[in-house]
Computed example of a mutant assay.
Amino acid sequence: MAHAYLQVIAHFFAKPGQGDAIVEPLTELAAATRAEPKNLYYEFFRSPLAPDHFVILEQYSDANGLAEHRETEHFHRLGFGTIIPMLERREVSSHMVSGDAT
């Protein structure tokens, strides 16, 4: 039987020239997020043409997964404390998806 999960798509646009500085904390955030109980998938991708632009794909086992992720120590420290201040802007959307998360 198919299971619904939350798909999150985030675009992070670093301040000009800050892309390199975001890679290490984003790598640490990704590893910590993958260990969260409701996280099914977390990967980020850096644009080869616009190195200050990152796309993050996340999947959570239910609709509350993202909200719980945003309350974690690692998100407060790395997301709010380190990465977000280096961004020019960010766009985050989330969608419930029916099917198997892979």
Rank of each mutant, 00 (worst) to 15 (best):
S98E: 14
H74I: 03
A101G: 14
H3N: 11
E71I: 05
F75K: 03
D62K: 11
F80K: 12
A32D: 13
G19P: 00
S93C: 08
E58M: 14
P16H: 05
E91L: 12
L40C: 11
S61N: 12
A35Q: 14
A101D: 12
L26P: 01
L57R: 14
G79Y: 02
H69E: 09
G99C: 11
D20I: 04
S93R: 11
T33D: 10
V97R: 04
M96T: 09
E36T: 05
F13T: 07
G19K: 00
G19W: 00
Q7Y: 07
L40Q: 13
D62V: 12
V8L: 06
H69N: 13
S98D: 11
A14L: 00
H3L: 10
M96G: 05
L78M: 09
G79Q: 04
A101W: 14
V8I: 12
F80P: 03
I9A: 09
I56W: 09
R77S: 09
S47Y: 02
I9P: 02
P16N: 05
D20E: 08
L87C: 11
Q7T: 09
L40R: 15
Y5I: 00
F13Q: 07
H74W: 05
G99R: 13
H95Y: 06
L78F: 06
D100W: 13
E88N: 13
T27E: 04
E24N: 07
P37T: 14
H76I: 10
V23Y: 00
Q18M: 06
T33L: 06
E91P: 02
A32T: 08
L78Q: 02
K15D: 01
F75T: 04
N64P: 02
F45L: 07
Q18I: 01
F44A: 07
I83C: 04
V55M: 11
S94W: 01
A2G: 09
E43M: 10
Y42W: 13
A32N: 12
A31Q: 12
I22W: 00
G17V: 03
A30W: 03
A14E: 00
I84F: 13
H69C: 07
P48C: 03
P48E: 05
A35S: 15
E68Q: 15
L57N: 12
L29D: 01
H76N: 13
R70E: 15
I22M: 04
I9L: 08
D52Q: 03
P25C: 05
Y5E: 00
L26A: 03
A67W: 05
P16K: 05
N39A: 11
E43C: 10
H69A: 07
L78Y: 03
F13V: 09
T27W: 01
I83S: 02
G81A: 10
R70S: 13
R77E: 09
A4I: 07
A101M: 15
L49G: 12
V55S: 06
Q59H: 15
G99S: 08
L49M: 05
P85N: 12
R46Y: 01
L66K: 04
Q59K: 14
S93I: 11
D20W: 04
R77Q: 11
P37A: 14
I84N: 05
S93T: 14
L66E: 05
L66A: 07
V8R: 02
A4S: 13
P37E: 12
L29Q: 06
F13S: 04
I83H: 02
M1Y: 13
